[in-house]
Design a protein around this nucleic acid. Structure first.
Length: 590
DNA sequence: TACCGTTGCGCG
DNA sequence: AAAGCGCGCAACGGTA
C-alpha cells in the first residue's frame, strides 16, 4: 500500500472511504487521507487547526470511516471539546504494542524496527488536562514522548500494521483485538471528557461520619485524634507515632504483641486491647489520606471526577488509570457517585467474569454448565465438588492465580478432576511460563518474554555446580513466572471480553436520541449532556449516566452488548455472561 | 530539595 | 505475612 496524499480523487460520485488517516502536514495543517478497503488512496482533504474538528465531523457524518490515528489519546480531546465524536478508529500506538509482541504475527521484524512507535504512554503526561486549550492552535497532537503524528510516518506505520495483520496466523482474531483495543482508546478519551458525576456533599457526609467534621488544614480530624489516644493508652506509650510502620512495630513488640508486620491481617490474629482501636485508626487514616477532603479538592470540579484512563496500561491488556486512583475508589465512597438531577446511573457488573472466560476458552462443558444461568460458584457446589460457595470461590481463584497452599491448595485438585479442560488450559499456561515461554490470549495478545536477569538465573541454576541457594531462588522465580502466565491468559482474555462489551455498548448508546438540553447546561458539556453515556469502567463493571427516560433502554443496551461480546469472542459456545444490574440515583445504597 | 525503595491498603 | 494474579497511591525514611 502506498498513499500519495496529493493524488486527485475520482470525479463524479466519490466512493466512500473505508479508512481515513489523520496526519500532520505542512504549514501546520492536518491532512485527511481517505483510503479504500485495500488501503489505496481515494482523495485527501486538508484542514487548518481551527477548522480540523469541523472537517472531521463532516467526514464522520458523511461516510463514518474507520479513523486511523497515531494516538487517539492525543487527538481525541480537541475533537471532543469541539463536540465531535468518532464511531470507529484504529489506534496506531496501541496496536503497535500488541502486534510487535503477538505470537500470531508471523514477521514482527518490520514493526520492531519502527522503534519510534514503541513509546509507552507516560500516564503523568499532563497534555490531556491542558491540551484542549493550550494547543488549540495546533493542528496535531503534541506531547513529550509521543509517537510520530506526521502524515508520512502515520501512513507508513499503518501499512506495516496492515501487512502484519493480513499475514498473521489468525487475522480474524487479531482484527477483533485491534478493533476492541482501538474502541477502548476512544472510550477512555470520552470517559475522561464526560467525567464521573460526583456528589461532593455526600462525600463530605461520609467523611464526617467516619472521621469527624472537616478539620482545619494540617490538623487531624477529631475521631482520629480520639482513636489514636485509645491506641496509645492501651499500649501504655503516649508518644507512639502511629503513622510510622517501623516505630509502631517496635511499640507493639514492647507491649508484648508478637507480630512481624503492622498489617491489619496479622494484627487481627492477636488479642490485645490496643488491636481494635489500632485497626480502626488504620481504616480512618487510609480514608483520610487516600480519599479525604484533600482528594475532593484536588480531583472533583463542577460535580465531576475526571481521572485519566490508560488503555493497555497493564501487561495483560487491562486498563490502568492515573489521577486520584480511579480504579481503587473504596466501596465506602460509592454513594458519592450520583446522577445529575433528572438523570440516573445504570450500574452493571459481570458475575465471575474470569472463570466464565476460562470455561469458554477451554470449552470445558462441565464448567460452562456449572455457571449456566446462575452463580458459577453455587453451580460448583451443586455439582458436588465442594460443600460451600466460599470454598468454590477460593478454589477457583486458586486455579486462576496458582494457589498451592491452604484452602485453595486443597480444593484445586478436586477442580482438576471435575473441570479437566479448564484446568489443563491454565496448567499449560503456567508450565509454558516456567519454561521461559510466551503465552497468548484468546484474541492474540502475547505475554512479554522473561527479562535477561530471569533467564540468566535459570541458566545458572541448571549448571551441575550451581549452589543450592541459587537453585532454589531460580525455582521460585520460575514458579512466580508460571503463576503470571497462568493468570495472563485468563485476565487478558477477560479484558478483551470487557473491551468488546464496552465497544458494543458505546455504539448502541451513541444511537440514542438526544434529549432536550437541560436548563442549566450540565458540566460535562454538550456532547455528554444530551444522551446516555458511559461514565465509569472498572475491569468487569460499567456505569452509564442516563437521562431518566433512557435508563431502561440503557440497561437493555448493556445486556444486549454483553450477549454480543460473548457471541463475538466465543461464537457457538453455550457460555453466558450474566450481569448484576441496578438503576438508581446513586451507584450504591448508603 | 529531589528522588527512591519499602510498607501498607484500596480496587478487580 | 494475605495462601495466589494484576494494578495506583500516600506516607515514611533513607540517600544524593
Amino acid at each position: 500500500m502506498s498513499a500519495g496524499p496529493g493524488e486527485p480523487g475520482p470525479t463524479g460520485t466519490a466512493p466512500s472511504p473505508t479508512w481515513c488517516v489523520l496526519g500532520r502536514s505542512d504549514g501546520g495543517r492536518t491532512a485527511l487521507v481517505m483510503l479504500d478497503a485495500e488501503g489505496a488512496p481515494l482523495r485527501s482533504e486538508y484542514a487548518a487547526p481551527e477548522g480540523l474538528a469541523a472537517l472531521v465531523g463532516r467526514v464522520e457524518r458523511e461516510s463514518s470511516p474507520r479513523w486511523v490515528l497515531s494516538d487517539a489519546a492525543a487527538w481525541c480531546p480537541r475533537l471532543l471539546s469541539a463536540g465531535v465524536t468518532l464511531q470507529r478508529c484504529h489506534d496506531l500506538r496501541l496496536v503497535h504494542r500488541i502486534l510487535r509482541h503477538s505470537e500470531l504475527v508471523r514477521d514482527p521484524a518490520p514493526l520492531r524496527a519502527a522503534t519510534a512507535w514503541d513509546t509507552p504512554l507516560d500516564p503523568h503526561e499532563p497534555v490531556r488536562d491542558t491540551g484542549a486549550t493550550l494547543f488549540d492552535l495546533d493542528a496535531a497532537p503534541s506531547r513529550s514522548g509521543a509517537v510520530p503524528s506526521d502524515l508520512e510516518e502515520t501512513l507508513a506505520e499503518f501499512a506495516r500494521q496492515r501487512t502484519a495483520i493480513d499475514g498473521a496466523q489468525d487475522p480474524a482474531r487479531l482484527r477483533l483485538l485491534v478493533a476492541a483495543e482501538s474502541a477502548g482508546a476512544l472510550i477512555a478519551a470520552e470517559l475522561q471528557a464526560a467525567g464521573i458525576p460526583w456528589d461532593v456533599a455526600e462525600h463530605d457526609r461520609i467523611l464526617s461520619a467516619a472521621l469527624g467534621p472537616r478539620p482545619s488544614p494540617g490538623t487531624p480530624p477529631r475521631r482520629m485524634v480520639e482513636t489514636g489516644a485509645e491506641v496509645r493508652e492501651a499500649l501504655g506509650d503516649p508518644l507512639v507515632p502511629l503513622d510510622s510502620a517501623p516505630k509502631l512495630l517496635r511499640a507493639l513488640h514492647r507491649a508484648g504483641i508478637d507480630v512481624a508486620s503492622t498489617s491489619q491481617w496479622e494484627l487481627k490474629e492477636h488479642q490485645h486491647p490496643a488491636i481494635a482501636p489500632l485497626l480502626q485508626y488504620k481504616k480512618m487514616s487510609r480514608l483520610l489520606t487516600a480519599n479525604g477532603w484533600t482528594w475532593l479538592d484536588e480531583w472533583v470540579h463542577e460535580g465531576r471526577y475526571r481521572p485519566l484512563y490508560v488503555p493497555g496500561g497493564v501487561v495483560t491488556g487491562r486498563w490502568a488509570s492515573s489521577g486520584g486512583g480511579a480504579l481503587q475508589i473504596p466501596r465506602q465512597l460509592r454513594p458519592a457517585l450520583r446522577a445529575d438531577p433528572g438523570w440516573l446511573l445504570v450500574s452493571a457488573d459481570v458475575s465471575q467474569l474470569e472463570p466464565r472466560v476460562l470455561a469458554a476458552m477451554s470449552g470445558d462443558r462441565a464448567m460452562i454448565a456449572a455457571g449456566a444461568g446462575r452463580d458459577l460458584y453455587s453451580g460448583i457446589v451443586e455439582a458436588g465438588v465442594v460443600s460451600t460457595r466460599q470454598e468454590a470461590k477460593i478454589g477457583v481463584l486458586g486455579a486462576l492465580y496458582g494457589g498451592t497452599t491452604g484452602d485453595s491448595g486443597r480444593v484445586v485438585p478436586r477442580l482438576r478432576q471435575t473441570f479437566p479442560d479448564a484446568m489443563r488450559l491454565v496448567d499449560d499456561a503456567a508450565a509454558t511460563g516456567e519454561r521461559s515461554g510466551t503465552v497468548t490470549t484468546w484474541l492474540g495478545r502475547s505475554s512479554p518474554a522473561p527479562d535477561e536477569e530471569w533467564i540468566r538465573a535459570q541458566r545458572a541454576a541448571h549448571q551441575v555446580d550451581a549452589p543450592a541457594g541459587a537453585r532454589e531462588r531460580a525455582r521460585r522465580a520460575a514458579r512466580d513466572r508460571g503463576r503470571f502466565t497462568r493468570n495472563f491468559v485468563v485476565q487478558g482474555t477477560a479484558a478483551e471480553w470487557a473491551l468488546s462489551w464496552m465497544a458494543a455498548l458505546r455504539l448502541r448508546l451513541a444511537g440514542f436520541p438526544a434529549v432536550p438540553e437541560p436548563e442549566a447546561a450540565a458540566p460535562s458539556g454538550p456532547v455528554f449532556s444530551r444522551r446516555a453515556h458511559l461514565a465509569f469502567f472498572l475491569h468487569d463493571e460499567v456505569i452509564v449516566h442516563a437521562p431518566a427516560e433512557q435508563a431502561e433502554a440503557a440497561a437493555a443496551a448493556i445486556r444486549d452488548s454483553a450477549d454480543a461480546a460473548g457471541r463475538l469472542l466465543f461464537p457457538g459456545s453455550p457460555i453466558d455472561f450474566p450481569l448484576d444490574l441496578t438503576i438508581s440515583e446513586r451507584s450504591a445504597q448508603t
